[in-house]
């Protein structure tokens, strides 16, 4: 499973993508917990959202291998 990274999320991980092969998160919540455990700096952010197929997704939304999944750190456009 591939996860896209933007902004500070890209800096924290040091890459524009994360790849999950052994432990694959099944929901948005599991993904948030997994990345926060692996990269504790995510816990320091003002907020952390996940997008599934270009839509903001709540914690209980299931993740499928073919979804386009992205970590959305606090936005700051404008």
């Amino acid at each position: 499973m591939k996860v896209l990274l933007f902004g500070i999320a890209k800096d924290i991980v040091g890459s524009s993508q994360l790849q999950f092969s052994e432990v694959v998160p099944k929901t948005v919540l599991e993904l948030k917990q997994l990345i926060s455990k692996t990269y504790p700096k995510f816990g320091e952010l003002s907020s952390l959202a996940v997008a599934v197929n270009s839509e903001y997704a709540k914690d209980d939304v299931p993740l499928n291998r073919n979804d386009e999944i992205a970590i959305i750190p606090p936005v700051s456009g404008g």
Binding site: F6, G7, I8, A51, Y56, A70, I72, P73, V75, S76, G77, G78
Partner: peptide, 13 residues
């Protein structure tokens, strides 16, 4: 502009 700043996934460094 107010809503864009809240919801649109764009980041500023």
């Amino acid at each position: 502009i107010d809503t864009l700043k809240e919801t649109v996934p764009i980041w500023k460094k």
